[in-house]
Amino acid sequence: MGPMADITVRALTEEDWETYRSARLEALTESPEAFVATVEDEERFPEQEWHNRMTRSVRLLAEVDGEQAGVASIGEATTEEEPTVAELFGLWVRPASRGTGVASALVKAGADTARERGRTHLTYWVGSDNGRAVAFASGFGFRPTDSRRPMRVVSEDDGEEEICMILPLTGDRGADF
């Protein structure tokens, strides 16, 4: 697939739960090291759990020429201190679609979704040793924050951390969070 492929991103509805389930299970199968969940656990989820997931967060599906190419989710990162922040999570792109703009299309759609919902910032947690992901997020305009947490994904490297990166969704890209 060339970089000129037609990439579309759409928000899935609750009725699209099977589409999301298919994409999510493929992501967990292909990149198990990237997720806290396991494909074995999520394969056992009852249908109602998938319906619930569709209503808790916005599930975005990227397609290239009508074929699933990637998925991402936008959820609330709201706290009492920061009620206007959304979180990008679960970003995954099929290996054949990597490097073609699918990830960028998903992040742009996620930022647009968060902005449409009145959010002023979008956060994205990235493994501090994942240089490729940090570079991707930085290139998109995300900036590192002081927030860190232990990696939630099981790793051979004890003590590995995730860093919270943040993207201002307003016109002022230089605003501090």
Rank of each mutant, 00 (worst) to 15 (best):
D65C: 04
R117L: 14
P150A: 15
E67Y: 08
G101C: 07
Y124V: 12
D172F: 11
R132F: 08
E160F: 10
R119H: 14
D112H: 06
L60A: 03
P150N: 14
S104L: 05
T123I: 12
E82M: 12
Y124A: 13
V71M: 14
V58S: 07
L169E: 00
L106K: 04
A69N: 06
V153H: 03
P83Q: 12
I74Y: 02
T120F: 12
T145Y: 10
V71H: 05
H121L: 09
S104C: 05
T84H: 12
D65G: 15
Q68E: 10
L122D: 01
F136D: 03
A77W: 08
A114Q: 05
D146F: 01
L60P: 01
R94P: 01
I74T: 03
A133K: 00
L106A: 02
S97W: 13
T78I: 15
C164S: 13
G159Y: 05
V85W: 02
T78F: 09
V107K: 01
R56M: 14
R115Q: 09
E87K: 05
V126N: 01
V126Y: 02
R98M: 06
R59E: 04
E76W: 08
D176F: 09
A72N: 00
E76D: 13
T100G: 07
G110E: 00
A114D: 02
A103W: 02
T170R: 11
T100E: 07
G174Q: 10
R132E: 11
S155V: 07
R152C: 04
L122A: 08
G159L: 04
E87R: 07
T78N: 03
A96M: 05
E81K: 14
G101L: 04
D112L: 10
E161R: 12
P168H: 08
P95T: 05
R152E: 13
G66T: 07
W125R: 06
E116L: 07
S73A: 10
S128V: 15
V102G: 03
A103D: 06
A72V: 11
T145M: 04
S57F: 14
S147Q: 14
A137D: 08
G99Q: 04
A103G: 15
L122Y: 02
V71Y: 08
K108L: 10
V153K: 08
E156I: 06
E80Q: 09
G139Y: 06
S128R: 05
L60S: 00
S57L: 08
E63F: 05
P150V: 13
R132G: 07
G159A: 05
T78E: 13
T120L: 14
A133M: 09
D146E: 15
F136Q: 03
S57M: 11
A69W: 02
G66W: 00
S97K: 00
D129K: 03
R56F: 12
S73Y: 07
E67H: 11
V107I: 06
L91Y: 02
T145H: 07
Q68H: 14
L61D: 03
G75K: 01
R173H: 13
S147C: 05
S138A: 15
D146H: 11
T120C: 10
P144S: 12
S57C: 12
A137W: 04
T145A: 09
D157H: 15
S97F: 15
A103C: 09
A114R: 00
G127E: 05
A175I: 15
A62G: 09
G171E: 15
R143M: 11
G127W: 01
V85M: 06
G90A: 09
A62M: 01
A96V: 11
A133Q: 02
D176L: 11
S155T: 14
R132Y: 04
R119L: 07
E76R: 09
A103N: 06
